[in-house]
Design a binder for these strands. Structure first.
Lengths: 265, 265
DNA sequence: GGGTATTTGTCCGTATGTATT
DNA sequence: AAATACATACGGACAAATACC
């Protein structure tokens, strides 16, 4: 089947993990030991380990060894409506931002970092403003139980500021929630939103923040949420990036029983 | 910054691609040429290329060269309601299965492959049947414009067959759609569904079918759709796997304007 | 804190195999 | 058949990170 020696070694090690002969979380034999076990050169053993690494089965730690990765118990985010799981955007009117499933997970986020910038093409297109026009951007890093969970940036048309929504450029959370704030201040009701779900490799910043390898092994979700007001015009674009190794999403349509805590672990 | 030489070479090449000095789709200099350009060994150059490969920026073709990958124009699937884009499951009552956006893309799928099997734990859990009880599985490979698009398996409780839904075990598409068929035959109305969206690395089968590298560079979406009947009981579990490099998803909540063809390319 | 052993990371050179043109 | 280009495999040397005494 897989002729090359490094693939055979990799396959053999993978089988040992699957069969339980090598336990999850435990350390693999060292490169020198494997080199003797398989009668191959160290570089060939390293190729095998590299293969398993990009498969996501093992990880290497300099000075320590190679370890079988443990599955991470994922965070589950509900993209539709409100439930016991954290929502994508802090829709604080009805559900406290950061409700989390079971076991009292602690949601935390940094103060927003505000920027006024010219809208890049994709942002302008989604927000339906002209490319290069000014937009307000509010960026936050968000944690669950002190582990990095997501990076979120919301964009608003500059006009909102001129019309009186001053708090959009204050570097702190808007207590009542931006949705309610914009409704109160500008009379803009959010009547719906559209999420656009993509997956890509993280950039260097994201890899650092999420503490994932800098090569592209662990992908990230990038979710664009465009929110619409009562006239059908986009009023907000929120871009959220989640590491794919510890995040999953749920979408409910029609009549669906509550998400109980049976499954998904 | 990134000290090792192979990372510097990789970074330099990446910058050349970003800046446009090396065009997308074009061929990189050969390993021997790069070896001279950077005054490094061929192995080091190969390490740089390997890095860019796992980043998804380039791909190597034996006997030909190394090429900068083109972005693929993605397929967009709507997870909520019906629109001009293909739906996750052929909800044929209202939207013809396989409607595709613009340019007359051609949707095609193989005849279903039927199996009666004991439900593995995750399937049983979602379908709310006891683990190890029998389920009907219908598996299809699906194509758009002759390129592999997704692999889909639907699971039904064995009881449906005994109650008279014979067509579930016939190896051909159910013309009126399984949703309508089950409504007509068993009086089971599908009143809603829940999608559970995950990302993982493809297994060997999937990598072959989707024609993506066998290492884990290109992730796959795995979407579990649990459909519920009027009593709130799961009546179907559909698992669909999509390669993440050419698939994106859209979720609409509330009042949202139609997805026009402006964006998302 | 310092030193040493262990383990993985980087880099080199070379030879040969395999796929494509 | 020959040339080209990447793939595999070997061996060696030194660096860097970590753990332990």
């Amino acid at each position: 089947m897989s002729n090359p020696m490094y693939r055979q070694i990799a396959e053999d090690l993978r089988a040992q993990v699957e069969s339980g002969a090598i336990k999850r979380g435990s350390q693999l034999p060292t490169e020198l030991e494997l080199r003797e076990q398989y009668d191959a050169s160290r570089n060939t053993v390293r190729d095998a380990i590299k293969w398993l690494t990009t498969l996501g089965l093992v990880e290497t730690k300099p000075g320590q060894g190679t370890f079988v990765v443990q599955k991470i118990s994922p965070y589950i985010t509900n993209l539709t409506g409100y439930s016991k799981v954290p929502t994508l955007y802090g829709e604080v009117e009805e559900s406290a931002a950061g409700k989390v499933e079971g076991k009292a997970r602690v949601f935390m986020s940094t103060d927003p970092q505000i920027e006024i910038q010219k809208a890049p093409a994709p942002i302008a297109s989604q927000l339906q403003v002209s490319e290069g026009s000014q937009v307000i951007s509010r960026h936050q890093k968000r944690y669950i139980d002190d582990t990095p969970w997501s990076m979120q940036t919301s964009f608003y048309p500059m006009g909102f500021l001129l019309k009186g929504a001053d708090k959009l450029i204050q570097a702190e959370d808007i207590a009542i929630g931006t949705v309610k704030y914009l409704a109160d201040t500008l009379g803009l009701k959010q009547v719906g939103y559209r999420d656009w779900i993509t997956v890509r490799t993280p950039d260097a910043n994201e890899a650092t923040f999420f503490n994932v390898p800098a090569d592209g092994r662990v992908a990230v979700f990038e979710i664009f949420r465009t929110a619409f007001d009562q006239t059908g015009t986009p009023m907000r674009l929120t871009v959220t990036v989640f590491p794919a190794d510890r995040n999953q999403f749920i979408v409910s349509v029609g009549q669906v029983p509550d998400v109980s805590d049976e499954s998904t672990l």
